[in-house]
Design a protein around this nucleic acid. Structure first.
Lengths: 118, 118
DNA sequence: TTGATATGAAACCAAATGGTTTCGTATAAT
DNA sequence: ATTATACGAAACCATTTGGTTTCATATCAA
């Protein structure tokens, strides 16, 4: 799962809002570039470059059909993101987990109202 | 949960590997800038700017203690990421979900070995 | 064959990004 | 009071990014 030395990593790929919209769009169905472009206010070439970046990150797959290239979502690299995120799961709204974390790490970053470490 | 019109959004904030390391580091405990810098090969000012970006995204909180500024992780904005990611959950390794998705969307992007739509 | 359509590649550009060094200022220590 | 420490702000710089327009090529249609 370890990044596979791709030219573009997932984190950087999804940083751009246009690319996130692309993923969302291609999740519903496979589409040729021209159709995809209909959903964006930028040039076809610009869309093409975004698609290249997504492909480099492994997030979309292309398939030639006649003179058109159809793109579709390839969701598996998002697992890397999910995995990364899972580290922080314990910090959310789970008091028990917080306590567990506190115990495990000794006098951690729990702070009282004075603003000083306990 | 809707982005709150911050100067930097979470997606962009976590795109940089240095910033991801920072989050990871500050998850364990609150730290002043100088200590943080000890973990990175770049200048203090550079680290400071990364911290500013993380703070703008709401991912770290700062607290002045004497002449030092201590930073700590603030994980809640990561929920936006989790939420975004949850949309794609159904695409992973769950054949039932795939089928459900297929049924719901009619003849979607399911493709056979010939490489043509069914 | 002769267009028209679908797309990528190349060259180019302005703005953003990640880094540096230098300077200013607030707090702590002597 | 003076010096040292901790930090942010400002100015600057090279590279990357997101966009454009123009050109080349492959396929479909007449």
């Amino acid at each position: 799962m370890a990044a596979l030395s791709r030219k573009h990593d997932v984190f950087q790929a999804i940083a751009d809002p246009t690319r996130r919209k692309l993923l969302r769009l291609l999740a519903d169905k496979e589409m040729p570039v021209t159709v995809i472009c209909g959903h964006f206010p930028i040039s076809r070439t610009a869309v093409s470059k975004h698609l290249r970046i997504l492909a480099d990150a492994g997030l979309v797959k292309e398939r030639k059909v006649g003179r058109e290239t159809r793109y579709r979502l390839e969701p598996t690299p998002l697992l890397e993101l999910k995995e990364w995120l899972s580290f922080y799961e314990r910090f959310w709204d789970n008091k028990m987990a917080m306590l567990k974390h506190y115990v495990e790490n000794g006098k951690g970053h729990i702070v009282d109202a004075d603003g000083d470490d306990k």
